[in-house]
Amino acid sequence: MPEKVPDIQPDPPVQIQQILDGDVMAGARLIRCIEAGDPAAAKMLGQLYPHAGNAFVIGITGPPGAGKSTLISALITMFRKKNFTVGVVAVDPSSHKTGGAVLGDRVRMQAHAGDKGVFIRSMAARGAAGGLARAAQDTCLVLDAMGYDIIIVEPVGSGQADLKITTLVHSLGLVAIPGTGDGIQAVKAGLLEAADIFIVNKDDLPGAGSEMMTLEHLVQQRTLEPDTWHPPVASTCARTGEGVEQLADLFLDHRQFMKDNQVLEKIQTAQAGDYFTILVRQMVMDRIDPWIDRQVGAFLDTAAQQAEVAADPYRAARELADRLTRSLGEPGSVDREGE
């Protein structure tokens, strides 16, 4: 390494109209370009943006081993029965050591590989949580513009990091395994507040009943306004498909509820704002990161300054940071809480 990598420039180039027509190969190639950070792809996203916003985006989160992929596969079957087309974005962790990944969620959904109404895309987390959020979000935009009715996002399954997808989904399902205290874990991770539907999967395992009761109890403790959505607790066995039809209906009910109460628009507006912040932050960081490296490199170039660092790295860092951010305005206006 660095090894040569495949040429990601699609040949012939992807046309906007192909995406809007739902051309699978064009859509897949555009996603590939987005993941690789191709600037041309970013431009195309801007053009697709006005055409998106029709899909209902569902997130399925929960700890590893909760059976998320199997559950999604069963949900796809149900949504297909109801004549919806379905897009899936499944994210797997990358190996910290090599940057490679086995994207293994898909294998649990492979029964749908021959179905033209289903598009499944696996993604590697590639380390950066922010970057992932963006790639996953942009992939959803493409699937949305391609005309998929429902998009299901499966994040890595690591609690806190999964919260990021709340800027992306309209309805979030939290999957818990009976007998593992997942409900309590979810409270700690802050997922409880974000979830719209609680799912006790593998309801054949011992402890399923008490897990449901714990969750129902926790949900009731939340202060709920009269006209707000009361998160239900669903019980499923993804392996046998039991309870999955009811779960699919709960998601659709939630969508209907959001539409009826004009919540969906509000969510979409808020999420658009959040996403705009993500975009700006990402773009600024992309530019600033290499600049910081250069500045630090230059600073360490003299023996005197190296000695300063060796003597008190905290002080040396603070002084350099102050100097570098002077142009941002008053020193006090820069967030210094981290010091």
Binding site: S94, G100, A101, V102, L103, R106, Q110, S122
Partner: peptide, 11 residues
Amino acid sequence: RDAGMEVIYSG
């Protein structure tokens, strides 16, 4: 994977 590639397994 350990060579840094992203691998999808079909089953």
